[in-house]
Nucleic acid binder design. Structure first.
Length: 375
RNA sequence: CGGGGUGUAGCUCAGCCUGGUUAGAGCGCGCGCUUUGGGAGCGCGAGGCCCCCGGUUCGAAUCCGGGCACCCCGACCA
């Protein structure tokens, strides 16, 4: 192709809509063009780049013994209802009806469909193991598309699915895939760090993510330079900073007018944040949950969700909190009934914490887990 | 869904507060000339439902109300 014939329009200035460096460059280089939120067209040059990336992925997947398939993007809604993920996906699932008013969905991922295919074609253990993959368009009605190509409503995903005879062979398939991914990123020139991750809605034993470090990312990871431990913050277990040591003292009720946050308590009572007990309220599958954690730490919602084995977890709204008798700003597990109480190990191990008295303007000092509250 | 911001030429923006003749600039685009050993210069030109609907007014890009779209933060992100 002659450059003179190439349809390519570069821009000196990035559109005001572009914020991230990657987004600005993609647009200015003329590789992509936005149609609507989360929907992008690829120009001839952009598409060339896209296809070269696909080629790398195909070569490495094929090299690892995986077989490519092509699956429908349009799914009868039944397969999603049968798996229970129609409800789980909620509004993220793009739904539509055909002319006979039959329900369909645009596939956000393809576990349901590949399971159908595998169930029909794999008839004996002699057919195993087999790894299938696809590079196809997926659709998700994202709550907030953003960052250029970072989070889209229509996007291309490479998805691979292995079918094995047991845990041992599954691990072998997993390792093959892992190595293929490492090579793909190497060849693409993208420096990534594999980290342990939460397996999310798919479930399962192990999960890893390949993280590309950037100031504009969506996740946080923890790395240990000496032992090599690497994990997504959603997954990572870590040692809490030490608590202030001491012997349990008698609990006392004190007036703390207008003091509603950990910072307020620190400023007015002369204690450290790690000597307070933070109260956070959630709604897990519709039921109220109270979480107690040391004041200098924050609740990790993914871990909480996994601990509760909850399908759905969200912050409790004010109305529900009031109805449950919680006093925002002065809440604690002391004397609290009527809901699940979850205690982070930090709050269990710490001694003589400052916690809410469940009455506006009052707190308790010297609160101790086990003696004064449970959870 | 909550908070914030923006919507005027293909792109970046000015004009709007203090309503009033043909709505502007730079870049890009077209044509012509010139130049041609360095992302060129000069001239001419095309291009705008001023996001949409309604209201106020003799008169609205400009004021008021409603809506839509897009971006950012959060929620969420299977």
């Amino acid at each position: 192709m002659r450059m003179s014939r190439l349809l390519l329009k570069t821009l000196r200035e990035a559109p005001a809509d572009a914020d991230l460096p990657s987004h600005k460059l993609l647009i200015r280089a003329g590789l992509v063009s936005q149609l609507a939120a989360g929907l992008y067209s690829f120009t001839p040059l952009g598409w060339k780049v896209f296809r070269r990336l696909e080629a790398i992925i195909r070569e490495e997947m094929d090299g690892a013994g995986a077989q490519e398939v092509h699956l429908p993007a349009l799914h009868p809604i039944e397969v999603w209802e049968k798996s229970g993920r129609a409800a789980a996906m909620g509004e993220t699932l793009f739904r539509l009806n055909d002319r006979k008013e039959h329900g369909f969905a645009l596939g956000p991922t393809h576990e349901e469909v590949i399971s159908d295919l595998a169930g029909r074609t794999i008839q004996s253990y002699r057919d195993l193991p087999v790894t299938l993959y696809q590079i196809q368009t997926k659709f998700r009605d994202e709550p907030r598309p953003r960052g250029g190509l970072i989070r889209l409503r229509e996007f291309t995903m490479k998805d691979a699915y292995s079918f094995d005879t047991g845990w041992y062979t599954l691990d072998a398939s997993y390792d093959l895939a892992f190595e293929a991914y490492v090579r793909i990123f190497q060849r693409a020139g993208v420096p990534v760090i594999p980290v342990a991750a939460d397996s999310g809605a798919i479930g399962g034993k192990d999960s890893q993510e390949f993280i590309f470090l950037t100031p504009n990312g969506e996740d946080e990871i923890l790395l240990c330079p000496s032992c090599g431990y690497a994990a997504n913050a959603e997954k990572a277990d870590f040692r809490r900073p030490p608590a202030v040591p001491g012997e349990p003292a008698p609990m006392e009720r004190i007036a703390t007018p207008g003091q509603k946050t950990i910072d307020d308590l620190v400023a007015n009572l002369g204690v450290e944040a790690r000597q307070t007990c933070k109260a956070v309220f959630f709604r897990a599958d519709g039921k109220p949950v109270f979480v107690a954690i040391r004041g200098d730490l924050d609740v990790n919602e993914v871990k909480l969700k996994n601990t509760l084995k909850a399908k759905d977890l969200e912050a409790m709204d004010e109305r529900m909190a009031r109805a449950a008798g919680l006093v925002a700003g002065s809440a604690s597990a002391v004397g609290l009934t009527g809901m699940t109480i979850v205690a982070d190990s930090s709050a269990v191990e710490a001694v003589n914490l400052v916690a809410g008295a469940n009455e506006d303007g009052f707190h308790y000092t010297n609160v101790n887990h086990g003696r004064d509250w449970k959870g």
